[in-house]
């Protein structure tokens, strides 16, 4: 795949982005127990990839089954675009008291945090697009990380015979109910990130250890 002439010269990138790219040159851990996962969630002004903006990013990271609270990630981004109708979901007002950073600062902090970890999100496609769009606006390339979508993984984890009983679409709330995950701090980015991490660990525990605990099975396109 030699489409090199389409690529921007790497030297244009800021140092932190180069460092981020550098991380993917290392051979990833093949062992799931030793892999660093980052579960994350974004709160946005809406669902339009082009028009809407990311207001906050929350994430937790873990290796194995332990999630250190000290290593959780939470930041709020200053945006000019503001939609009052979504405030009631995420609760982030235009002039709320949180310390806010610029998009570029947010990107730097986020990439420093995720490094080459495997990312987990619920309906990962949306969060991935929103972040990628933010990267593009700031003249950077797309996320390079492997992705796991808890929505897709949950459906896959159900045995074939239950296929007809599966819903087309599972919201985070649905999965909390199905898997008995406590809903605390729902609709804040870091609260949802923690819930997503719990959901992932619970699905993982339910999977057939011999058959399914393989990267090909877990990863989402």
């Amino acid at each position: 795949m030699n489409f090199n002439w389409f690529r921007k010269e790497k030297t244009d990138y800021p140092d932190f982005y180069l460092a981020y790219l550098e991380g993917f040159k290392k051979k990833p851990k093949s062992n799931i127990e030793e892999t660093r996962f980052v579960a994350f969630d974004t709160e946005t002004t809406g669902f339009d990839r082009k028009e809407d903006r990311v207001l906050s990013i929350g994430a937790v990271s873990f290796v194995g089954k332990s999630i250190p609270v000290s290593n959780s990630f939470e930041l709020y981004i200053h945006q000019d675009i503001f939609k009052s109708e979504t405030v009631k979901i995420h609760g982030i007002r235009k002039n709320s008291g949180y310390k806010k950073v610029t998009e570029m600062e947010a990107i730097q902090a986020f990439l420093d945090y995720i490094k080459n970890s495997v990312l987990i999100a619920h309906h990962a496609g949306f969060d991935k697009n929103m972040i990628n769009e933010m990267l593009r606006r700031n003249g950077l390339g797309k996320l390079k990380n492997k992705f796991i979508d808890t929505g897709v993984l949950f459906k896959k984890s159900k045995h074939k015979i239950y296929e007809d009983t599966l819903q087309k679409h599972y919201s985070l709330d649905d999965l909390c109910k199905e898997l008995n995950v406590l809903k605390v701090d729902r609709h804040t980015a870091s609260g949802d990130a923690l819930i997503t991490a719990m959901i992932f660990l619970k699905i993982l525990a339910r999977l057939d250890k011999q058959k399914h605990l393989k990267w090909g099975y877990l990863l989402h396109g």
Binding site: Y76, S190, G191
Partner: peptide, 13 residues
């Protein structure tokens, strides 16, 4: 940095 998760842990503790 604000750490909402830590605050929720407190709420429970």
């Amino acid at each position: 940095m604000k750490n909402s998760i830590a605050e929720r842990v407190c709420d429970f503790l």
